[in-house]
Design a binder for these strands. Structure first.
Lengths: 345, 345
DNA sequence: CTGAAAGCGCTTACAG
DNA sequence: CTGAAAGCGCTTACAG
């Protein structure tokens, strides 16, 4: 990497002069036009790239703490805006002096981007969506800065979690209370163990309640996936009378399929989804979606709080916070007025 | 801001020792336990915050270029994920060595965050959603680094735009070709002049085509806004037979209202929306949305390309790229087979 | 019109 | 067990 010194050496000038010209103050400081030309050309030729770390350091600019947010770059990216919203609100509310960097990574390849070197370049880290493989990498390495995991369990790092058991339990209990007998499950391939907990608990609890063993269809975590999965359900000899979807995307796709097949929701099939998407979308689809609501924004806020505390107290002892996932009944599975388990949890 | 030197001075130790302990290598380097304790306590007491710029500089880490993305922190934040997706794909495809920072700002208050000081701390900038006030600030100030504006016009900065005229023109032409007479418009308050262009051109063109003057309702740019706006339309003495919505959110809310009122789309009212949201959502709502498609991802990609070129060639001459906004007919306004203006534009 | 020198905060190899 | 010194790349106040 070429530096100002390199350019100066090449041209037989001093670093001062080169710096002045590169900063665009050549005219103001009356550097000869010709000299300016030579400097700019040399910069281009040598591929000069200003080193902003040096600029910041030199200028004693009130440098903000850098928080790096690691987010997987697959179709979970559309959840990022809810999470970011939570972070930004918190930053503004608390007047946190944070610079937020987004680091994309590929599923199972966290280790490619979260290196010891990259850790040196930030003050604290939020890690979202790590797979089992990624978690193993995290557990087997040491990074001497505050790190918080979003929705993952660890003894080594701070965590902000929700209760995956409840997410599977609630829909099963509600369907049971509604007298349903034939449950179905539209799920996407598990990208972390919590997803298996959700679906396993649902299947277990549905059995406990004396319902049939659920029909389970694994689909892509997209609206198209949900659409195709629901078509599969429609093709069965006997239709399910209730359906649990593991994401909003899947549920929204399923709604379209049921509509096209002339199936009435909730009359023929009650539907509850994991509320991972935008609440506004859940409210304004037809029929509106009953969901187990995931408090992404609140969790994002808590991630930042934990990091902020760690940074200011210099205390990196792992801290864990779990968030409730309340059930929000809407049209796709209306509340029974008498049912006590459907009160806000 | 306390530094390592401050801590060393306070304790009568050398900066070396303090650095070693703070980095977590105290045991490895056999620093007395007691000394370590004193250092950590002093760090906490003085509010020590490691200066990562200094760390990076000192370590000669292959520092990435920092690209700052300025995005307004109101409900437009849900569009951010599409934009980010475009950026991330480009970064990965081209193996760009960029660190991406997200800088939130309040509408009309870009000047609070985009300061000369903050510009020193980054290599290049993408500015999204500036208001007229924000644009004025930009036009009246000089920043000596590459800056690209997303969806705004400027002679001073590079721009990546779409054709706002076409966005208003197409729906009017299509409704006219379909023989519609009673147009309506659901729009949100203009946050930049391009939005006025879209709606003005629509209103003008609809008149040109001999249709009635459109009923125009201004609503919040949310699904709720669209829902309420559509209810207003339903309450009119004579219903519109076609409707142009200035965002996906508005259109989706409107769909719900029409459904509840028993109005059939497209039979009774044809609907075209500005396709600002997720394409998957447009496809899987009921009925699916006909949209003027905004190529956010491609535009994001182009923003990054322009900055990357500027950075490598050291050439900050403004460059402008305009993107087409193709019409995508779906169920809410099906294509007439014969209509030539409905071929992909 | 251009250059020499100091220093931003940190870490490391070396010395003791 | 701890310290003195050098240097990462840059900019600025000063000198000439």
């Amino acid at each position: 990497m070429a530096t100002i010194k390199d350019i100066a050496a090449k041209l037989g000038l001093s670093p001062s002069t080169v710096s002045i010209v590169l900063k665009g103050n050549g005219d103001k400081r009356k550097i000869k036009k010709e000299t300016q030309q030579r400097i700019l050309e040399a910069a281009k030729e040598l591929g000069y790239k200003p080193n902003i770390q040096a600029k910041i350091l030199r200028g004693s600019l009130s440098s903000k703490s850098n928080i790096s947010l690691y987010w997987v770059s697959d179709n979970r990216i559309h959840l990022l805006s809810r999470f970011l919203k939570g972070l930004q609100t918190t930053i503004i509310e608390n007047n946190y002096q944070f610079q937020l960097s987004i680091v994309p990574y590929e599923n199972n390849h966290l280790e490619d981007v979260l290196t010891q070197e990259s850790v040196l370049a930030t003050n604290a880290i939020i890690i979202c969506n790590p797979s089992e493989t990624d978690m193993e990498y995290l557990e087997n390495n040491d990074f001497n800065i505050p790190i918080v995991l979003y929705n993952r369990y660890s003894k080594k790092y701070s965590t902000v979690t929700m209760d995956d058991k409840t997410i599977g339990l609630l829909p099963a209990q509600i369907f049971a209370a509604h007298g349903k007998k034939h449950p179905a499950l539209l799920k996407s391939p598990a990208t972390f163990s919590g997803m298996n907990i959700r679906t396993n608990v649902f299947e277990f609890q549905v059995n406990e309640a004396g319902m049939e063993h659920p029909v389970s269809v694994t689909v892509d975590d997209t609206m198209k996936g949900g659409y195709l999965g629901a078509l599969t359900l429609c093709g069965l000899n006997s239709l399910p009378d209730c359906l649990f979807c593991t994401s909003d995307s899947i549920a929204l796709g399923a709604l379209k399929a049921f509509y096209e097949r002339g199936l009435h929701i909730p009359e023929q099939i009650e539907l509850i989804s994991v509320g991972s998407g935008r609440p506004e979308q859940e409210e304004y689809c037809v029929p509106s979606l009953s969901v187990i609501s995931l408090p992404l924004e609140d969790m994002a806020r808590e991630c930042l709080k934990i990091l902020s505390d760690s940074l200011s107290t210099f205390d990196y002892v792992p801290k864990s916070v779990a968030f409730p996932t309340p059930y929000i009944p809407r049209e796709s599975c209306p509340a029974l007025l008498r049912a006590k388990e459907e009160r806000q949890i």
